[in-house]
């Protein structure tokens, strides 16, 4: 009948499990796929990432040279990071701010 009493008493005296979000931000976890970044000076604009992207989030222009990411389309799967021949795409652990 009173199986949760112990739990309730403990919950009264310990600090909250949740965070007060905008004040306290969860630290980024190493190795987490948060957002895609490019070291643009190493990019050779081959277009491999554009062809492979499952969500068509990346557009690579040859003339003039450009690389654009639509962050609202990106599904942070990391497939482009895998296929990049120059390894200039990196996945950073921080999620981008809303």
């Amino acid at each position: 009948m009173f199986t949760l009493i112990g739990n309730i008493v403990r919950c009264l005296f310990r600090k909250p499990v949740t965070r007060l979000y905008p004040v306290e931000v969860k630290p980024a976890v190493a190795g987490c796929r948060g957002q895609l970044h490019i070291r643009i000076e190493e990019c050779i604009f081959c277009g491999a990432c554009q062809r492979r992207c499952p969500a068509n989030a990346i557009t690579v222009g040859k003339q003039p040279k450009s690389w654009t990411l639509d962050p609202y389309r990106c599904i942070v799967c990391g497939y482009c990071v895998e296929v990049c021949p120059k390894k200039c795409l990196v996945m950073r652990p921080e999620h981008f701010k809303p």
């Binding site: 499952p54 969500a55 068509n56 557009t59 389309r73 599904i75």
Partner: peptide
């Protein structure tokens, strides 16, 4: 044509 909202995008 890709500028307009295209139906091919997954989500």
């Amino acid at each position: 044509a890709t500028e307009a909202a295209a139906p091919g995008g997954a989500h």
